[in-house]
Structure formats: C-alpha cells, structure tokens
C-alpha cells in the first residue's frame, strides 16, 4: 500500500514541478536572433535603444541562439516572445500547430551556392561524389536548392543525397579548405567571405532558385505574447521600423555601429549592408511561393486560407 501512495505522491509532485509558477509581466520582452548581417536592424535597435525609447521602463532580453530549431523550441517553451528566422522553418512549425504568426519582414538578402570547382557551372554539373553543405534539412537553403532542382530536373529531391549538414561557419571553413565538400549554400557574411577568396564562384543565387525576390528573415511572435502584451507589441513593431529606416537612411552611421557589434572593419560592413540584393524592409515577399512549394513536397500538410492566419494584422504587404 505504501508503494502506491508513494507513486501518487511522486506523480503529484511531478505535475506541480512541471506546471511551475508563471509570472506575467507586461513590461518585459524576450527576443531571439541569430548571427548574420541579415539581422542587422536588430543590432541597431539594440544599440540605439529604440525599444527603451518607445516604451520607457521596458525590460528587454536579447538572445542570440545558434539555430532556428533552438529558437522555435524556446518560444514553444514560453522562454521567448519573438524570434527571427527564415520563412520555411516558420511555416513548418506553424503547420505542426505552433501558435504564432509573422510580425514583419526584416531583410532580403543575397543567398547563394558557392563552389571552388571551375568545372561546376550549374547544379547540373554535380556528380554523385560531390557534397553540398547547408545548415539543415528544411532550412531555407535546402528549400531553395530543392526549388532549383524542381525547375532543372523536375525532381526537387535530386540533390538530396549530396547534402551535408553544417552550420554556416563550419561549412565556410570546409569550403575554403577545399576538403570534404564541393559547394556551400550560405548567406552573408559567409557568402561574401567565400567569394572574396577569388577562386570561388557562385553557381546559383537564392533569387534564381526562387525565380523572384523573397524575404530571407522574418520576425514571428507567439499568440500568447501578442494577446497579452499589446503595448509592448506595438512598441516593438515601431522600433523595428525605426531601425530598418535608420539603416536605409544612414548606412554609414549604421555601419559604424554594426562594425563594433560584428567585430569587422567599418568599410567592410558598409560594403556588405549596401551590397546589391541586400535590402532591409518590413515587406514580406515570397511567403505564398514558399508555402505552396512546401505543401507540394509534403514538408507541410496544409496552406493558410488567408494570409491573416500566418501574419499579425499590422504588416504592410506590398505584394
């Protein structure tokens, strides 16, 4: 008998422990980003204190996480309110039932597949022995490559057997040392560094893969945060706009701020943020194209009936 009461006691304790005590604080926000120039407006927002200016007394918690999966998991666990990532990982989690929507676009960015091999001029030239590094299956790089494969070979999974999963810095190092991998699908600043090598060339750009311009990074907020903290949400959205406008209006000043953040020379940062194809804008482009491609290839099971299901109301979309 004693055994059973112990079991019950343990179960109760376990449930109490898991439920914990959650405090709701109006004036607090946790934001997650990743490393890369595509996230530059967030660095500006942080450095210039836009959020604090727009909502005095707010407590801002910035997190830089290593990958999208970690950001999604932290948001699911309620540890983060807002996270930045590419559209495909957002849609994959939305499809699985995660309660969140896009706040705003952040950046449009040159992405590209880079190789050191002179004989490889397009994705048609890969042989089964070649290896292509990209962050992970389901990442925007993977989806873009699949899109290009669908167009070229009518088979989106044509090159899947060549893929090697590597974080951006590892992939860059592997490519530059010309070991193990043949090509690397990556984003700034890694792609810029790779192309600077001189012997490297790009065989496929993100824009070519998609067939049009698309938003690289979007910000998403959980439903809970959106419903419970309307003031903070509004302040965040206007601060984000302010930061995006600041980069576009004062690129030199922005470069000076970012140079310290990224630990890069100022001129280099300026060159990167004004690179052709690098755009900071809240407009969300390419969402439908991604959604339909993901659905068609069974990465997601459904498509939103209206865009309001995946975007909070106040996003300006100049489609």
């Amino acid at each position: 008998m004693r055994k059973y009461s112990a079991i019950i006691l343990i179960s109760i304790l376990f449930i109490l422990l898991l439920s914990g005590c959650k405090k709701e604080v109006e004036n607090r926000i946790s934001i997650a980003e990743q490393y890369g120039l595509a996230y530059a407006p967030l660095q500006i927002m942080k450095a210039k204190g836009f959020l604090e200016k727009n909502l005095p007394g707010i407590e801002v918690n910035w997190e830089q996480l290593g990958n999208t999966a970690a950001i999604r998991e932290a948001m699911l666990a309620g540890k983060l309110d807002i996270g930045f990532m590419a559209i495909p990982p957002f849609l994959i989690a939305w499809d699985k039932g995660m309660k969140w929507k896009i706040i705003s676009g952040l950046s449009i960015s040159p992405l590209g597949l880079v190789t050191y091999r002179d004989d490889i001029k397009s994705i048609r030239d890969f042989s089964p022995e070649d290896r292509i590094a990209l962050p992970q299956p389901g990442s925007i790089q993977h989806i873009l490559l699949s899109m290009a494969c669908e167009r070229e070979f009518s088979n989106p999974r044509k090159l899947d057997d060549l893929l090697v999963t590597m974080a951006h810095p590892d992939g860059m190092n592997a490519l530059l040392s010309r070991k193990e991998i043949t090509a690397h699908f990556t984003s700034p600043p890694y792609i810029f560094k790779e192309l600077k090598d001189g012997k490297m060339h790009q065989i496929l750009s993100g824009k070519e893969a998609m067939g049009k311009e698309f938003t690289f990074i979007v910000g998403a907020a959980t439903e809970k945060f959106y419903d419970n903290n309307p003031r903070v949400y509004k302040a965040f959205v206007s601060s984000l706009r302010e930061a995006i406008d600041f980069i576009n209006d004062h690129p030199e000043e922005a470069a000076a701020i970012l140079a310290t953040e990224y630990n890069l020379p100022e001129e280099e940062v300026l060159k990167y943020i004004t690179w052709p194809g690098m755009k900071y804008t809240p407009v969300i482009k390419g969402l439908d194209e991604f959604a339909h491609f993901l659905k068609k290839n069974n990465y997601i099971s459904k498509i939103y009936a209206s865009r309001e299901e995946v975007i909070w109301e106040d996003v300006k979309d100049e489609k």
Binding site: I92, M98, Q136, T165
Partner: peptide, 10 residues
C-alpha cells in the same frame, strides 16, 4: 532525431 527536430516533429 535531429531531422525530426528541425521539422518540428516532437
């Protein structure tokens, strides 16, 4: 497991 994680398949 990693693949299930990135595709958010808990």
């Amino acid at each position: 497991i990693f693949k299930k994680r990135v595709f958010f398949d808990i």
